[in-house]
């Protein structure tokens, strides 16, 4: 890739040649469309949840199960991590490699604590006898919230992989694109969580 990065400066004169910047822009757009498809995945899960939410089959409902302090903590943690992932991008744009990795570490730690809280919450509910097989409502609940959690977990692994790449290769057009993408992904997961928080938890307990 090194020779590509250098040749890009010499060939970057408009048409007829595929400079590297164009390629990275293509990849950004592809990732954006992937995010849209992920939106539809969550939309379908929300639709299923909305249809099945009252089908508790005699089992516990959201009002019986949800404990808001933990959920509120999760919400503010994820919000903050969305902000810190933005700060990572700001450091990157300044060319500050240390700042970039630092903010990524903060983001990942916040993400990991979010997941820890969520897993604890799930385990406690299961312990109380509210399993995925208890009712249609709980099937929909665990699948929707769990899919979000799975996305966050995958994002964490990806983030660690990117920290290693930035540490090794520095801030190049390729690592820049990758960091921009993961930060976009992270903001997106935050948006999904806002709707989980609103529709599942807030509307569930009130």
């Amino acid at each position: 890739m090194a020779h590509v990065a250098t040749s890009q400066s010499s060939h970057d004169h408009g048409h007829g040649h595929d400079g590297h910047h164009d390629l990275e822009a293509l990849r950004m757009m592809g990732f954006w469309i992937f995010i849209i498809t992920d939106c539809i995945i969550f939309g379908t899960l929300f639709a299923t949840y909305a249809v099945l939410v009252n089908n508790t089959a005699g089992g516990p409902s959201g009002a019986d199960l949800f404990e808001m302090p933990g959920v509120i903590a999760e919400t503010f943690i994820l919000l903050t991590s969305s902000f810190t992932s933005g700060l990572a991008v700001l450091s990157m744009n300044r060319g500050d490699k240390k700042g970039l990795i630092g903010w990524l570490i903060v983001t990942a730690l916040l993400g990991a604590s979010f997941i820890t809280l969520e897993v604890t919450e799930f385990l406690k509910m299961i312990d109380e006898g509210a399993k995925i097989s208890t009712s249609a409502f709980l099937s929909a609940f665990y699948t929707l919230v769990g899919t979000h959690g799975l996305h966050v977990s995958i994002g964490l692994i990806w983030m660690v992989a990117l920290m290693l790449q930035v540490a090794k290769r520095g801030i190049t057009p390729v690592t820049k694109r990758k960091i921009s993408n993961i930060s976009l992904y992270w903001h997106f997961l935050d948006v999904v969580w806002i709707f989980v928080f609103t529709i599942v938890y807030m509307m569930g307990v009130r």
Binding site: H15, S82, G86, V89, N93, R177, L184
Partner: peptide, 28 residues
Amino acid sequence: AQHHDTHAPHGGDAHESHGSMKSYVLGF
């Protein structure tokens, strides 16, 4: 090559996230 080069000179940074500290803090 991108087709819309004809109207807008692409500086190559079309894909970069911009934003300033101010906009991030305000958003947060």
